[in-house]
């Protein structure tokens, strides 16, 4: 019953879901991000069947989804702190961090809710590319929901100081910029069937933006 109330509070952006004793709140939010992300990652890695040779990929994916969110978050945190200080909003920093974490835990809750759908989709035996698209769509849906949640969790802060809106925009730019590359580095999430299962594809590290740009140039050049 308590868990249900908490999930409801996080998803509707109720202020009490973010307030409260900061440390316990932080631990709880981080726990939700870890568990929710791992749940979706686990299902994400089952593409091609739940056979023993897929277990490594399932484990890796379960680790990588929370890692993607939390590592990106951690990288952006120092500059977020300095910007809060510079704009004179240091006192709200803790609350802003909890609002961001609450948003991310909301995102993982949405993802976890989509996990059965993904399992159902995988059961139809889609190819690797189709699975890739499906997961991209799932993450897209989760990100859109997160945008909505972010607005809810930030409402109070913005009402207190309109400059929080500016900070939030700056944060989204930084988070998105880092997150895209983080997702690229943490590949493979699904695991191409014709390649060995590895945690990283170190041989194919590089730059996500450059890859996108090259693909775009290739498409435009061909068309």
């Amino acid at each position: 019953m308590r868990a249900e109330r908490l999930v409801g509070g996080l998803l509707t952006g109720a202020p009490w879901s973010v307030d409260g004793p900061p440390r316990r709140r932080l631990a709880l939010l981080l726990g939700i991000i870890g568990a929710g992300g791992a749940a979706y990652g686990l299902v994400m890695g089952t593409h091609g069947g739940v056979t023993p040779d897929r277990w490594p990929q399932m484990t890796f994916s379960a680790l990588k989804v929370p890692l993607l969110l939390l590592a990106t978050f951690a990288l952006g945190l120092p500059s977020f702190f300095v910007l809060h200080s510079l704009l004179g909003l240091r006192d709200d920093f803790g609350r802003a961090v909890r609002a961001l974490l609450a948003t991310q835990s909301g995102l993982t809750l949405v993802l976890a809710a989509l996990a059965p759908l993904t399992a159902w989709f995988y059961a139809g035996g889609p190819g690797y590319r189709l699975a890739l698209l499906w997961n991209a769509a799932a993450f897209g849906v989760a990100s859109l929901s997160a945008q909505l949640l972010l607005r809810r969790h930030y409402r109070q802060l913005i009402a207190r100081h309109p400059q929080h809106r500016l900070l939030l925009r700056g944060w989204l730019v930084l988070y998105g910029f880092t997150g895209v590359q983080m997702g690229w580095v943490l590949r493979p999430f699904i695991g191409s069937p014709d390649r060995a299962t590895t945690f990283f594809r170190t041989d194919a590290w590089g730059n996500a933006y450059q890859e996108v740009w090259r693909t775009l140039l290739g498409v435009l050049g061909a068309g």
């Binding site: 951690a74 990288l75 952006g76 120092p78 500059s79 702190f81 300095v82 910007l83 510079l86 930084l174 910029f177 880092t178 590359q181 983080m182 690229w184 580095v185 590290w205 590089g206 730059n207 933006y209 450059q210």
Partner: peptide, 23 residues
């Protein structure tokens, strides 16, 4: 320098993962 250094972790992350010098 506080601003620049606070962006350091992001730069280091890109430095560790990217291969593109112009980037």
């Amino acid at each position: 320098l506080a601003v620049i250094a606070s962006l350091g972790p992001i730069v280091a992350f890109f430095g560790l993962s990217t291969t593109s010098y112009p980037f």
